[in-house]
């Protein structure tokens, strides 16, 4: 994704701030605004959002004539693999326990490095997951499930930590 408007980094950050500001202000009007002496829940966010919008527009406008650094390329592959595996870990953790979720996270995120070697990654996943399970669940007793919550797994001693 190449961006090419003026100083595009500044331009797009301006757009981002303005959009976020308008969103916050837009929602704030649905709350009670109140007065300065008796502020409602919408008062502070309403004005902050307005301020952010103005700042964003200013940044974008100034950038149009500037000659700063141009936009940088987005690398979608590492972005996708890392974030998707984190999200997957979040969803899996309660359902399948740390052993499976951890393996999925390590293997999935490794796909983003561009130098994926299956054997290496499998060993890494196994080692890291067992280490984390031992230290955090076994040792520090954080309330994280070890194994999937199915009955079939409850016969394993390991799962009853």
């Amino acid at each position: 994704m190449k961006l090419a408007i003026g100083n595009s980094r500044d331009f797009w950050s301006g757009v981002m701030f303005a959009a976020a500001g308008s969103l916050f202000t837009g929602i704030a009007v649905t709350y009670k605004l109140g007065t300065a002496a008796r502020m409602g829940p919408g008062y502070f966010p309403f004005y902050l959002g307005l301020l952010l919008t103005v700042l964003g527009i200013a940044i974008a406008v100034v950038s149009l004539k500037g000659e700063g650094p141009s936009g940088d390329t987005f690398h979608w592959a590492p972005l996708f693999w890392v974030l998707a595996s984190i999200a997957l870990f979040g969803v899996m953790l309660k359902l399948t326990g740390v052993l499976f979720a951890g393996m999925a996270l390590v293997i999935g995120s490794s796909l983003g490095s561009g130098e994926f070697k299956l054997r290496e990654v499998l060993w890494l996943a196994l080692g890291l997951t067992v280490f984390c399970a031992a230290v955090f669940v076994g040792g520090l007793k954080l309330p994280i499930p070890m194994c999937p919550g199915f009955e079939a797994f409850e016969q394993f001693r390991l799962c009853r930590i």
Binding site: I86, V91, L93, K94, V98, L105, S109, L128, F136, I144
Partner: peptide, 20 residues
């Protein structure tokens, strides 16, 4: 980096035991 990721994920989950 996968090591950092797994530590971070376990950490962020355990602060309030929320997958969200």
């Amino acid at each position: 980096y996968p090591a950092i990721l797994i530590f971070c994920c376990i950490g962020v989950y355990s602060i309030s035991n929320a997958w969200m």
